[in-house]
C-alpha cells in the first residue's frame, strides 16, 4: 500500500463524510424551505377534473342548514363515535375523510390535519380532540372564531353527530 494511495483514501474518506452530511441536508430541504402545500392543492384539483360530482352534490349537501335536526333525530346515536368528517359547505363542499385516531388540527398552517385557507382562518385555528369517545372542538384563540351550530365556541365543546361546525367559509360535520 503506497503512501499516495493512503493519502488519496484518507482525503477520499473526508469527502465521503461530508457527502453524507450534505446528502442528509439535501434530503431534508423540503423541511427547511417548507412544504409546497399549494402545489399539493393544485395537483388535487388537477386530479379532480370532475368537480362535476362536487357540483352535483349540492343537491343533497346544502341540507345541513336545515337538516341538522333530522341528523340529530336519534340522540342515542351519540353513543357511537364519529368516524368521518364531511365538508357541508364551502369551496370543498361534499368532500369527506376519515377522522384520525385522536385529534385533528384545523388551520391555515400546512401542518394542520385539515388545512383551510380563506380570509377568515387563523394559522392554528381550532382542533378536534377525542375525549372519552366523544369528539370535542376547541378554538385555539382564533381571530374570527369557530362556530358550533351557529354559537361561537369559547371552551372545548362536545360536537354531536351531524351538527355543523363553521370555520371561515367552510362548514363541516361529523358523521359515523
Amino acid at each position: 500500500m503506497g503512501e499516495l494511495t493512503l493519502l488519496l483514501l484518507r482525503l477520499g474518506f473526508l469527502v465521503l463524510l461530508w457527502v453524507f452530511v450534505f446528502a442528509i441536508v439535501y434530503a431534508l430541504r423540503s423541511d427547511l424551505f417548507g412544504q409546497r402545500a399549494r402545489r399539493i392543492a393544485a395537483e388535487r384539483t388537477a386530479s379532480f377534473p370532475g368537480e362535476a360530482p362536487a357540483a352535483s352534490a349540492p343537491a343533497s349537501a346544502p341540507a345541513p342548514a336545515t337538516a341538522p335536526t333530522a341528523h340529530r333525530a336519534p340522540p342515542h346515536a351519540g353513543a357511537g363515535t364519529a368516524k368521518r368528517l364531511v365538508i357541508t359547505s364551502g369551496p370543498r363542499e361534499g368532500m369527506e375523510f376519515d377522522l384520525p385516531a385522536e385529534q385533528l388540527t384545523i388551520g391555515r398552517s400546512s401542518e394542520s390535519g385539515l388545512v383551510i385557507r380563506d380570509d377568515y382562518t387563523s394559522t392554528h385555528h381550532a382542533r378536534l380532540m377525542l375525549w372519552n369517545d366523544q369528539w370535542v372542538v376547541q378554538d385555539l384563540d382564533s381571530t374570527n372564531g369557530t362556530f358550533l351550530d351557529g354559537e361561537r365556541v369559547t371552551v372545548p365543546t362536545p360536537v354531536p353527530l351531524g351538527t355543523p361546525v363553521t370555520i371561515g367559509k367552510t362548514s363541516f360535520e361529523l358523521r359515523r
Binding site: I87, G90, P91
Partner: peptide
C-alpha cells in the same frame, strides 16, 4: 407527523 387530510382553499 401531521399530514393534511384535506386542503380547503378559497377559489
Amino acid at each position: 407527523r401531521s399530514q393534511p387530510q384535506l386542503v380547503v382553499e378559497q377559489d
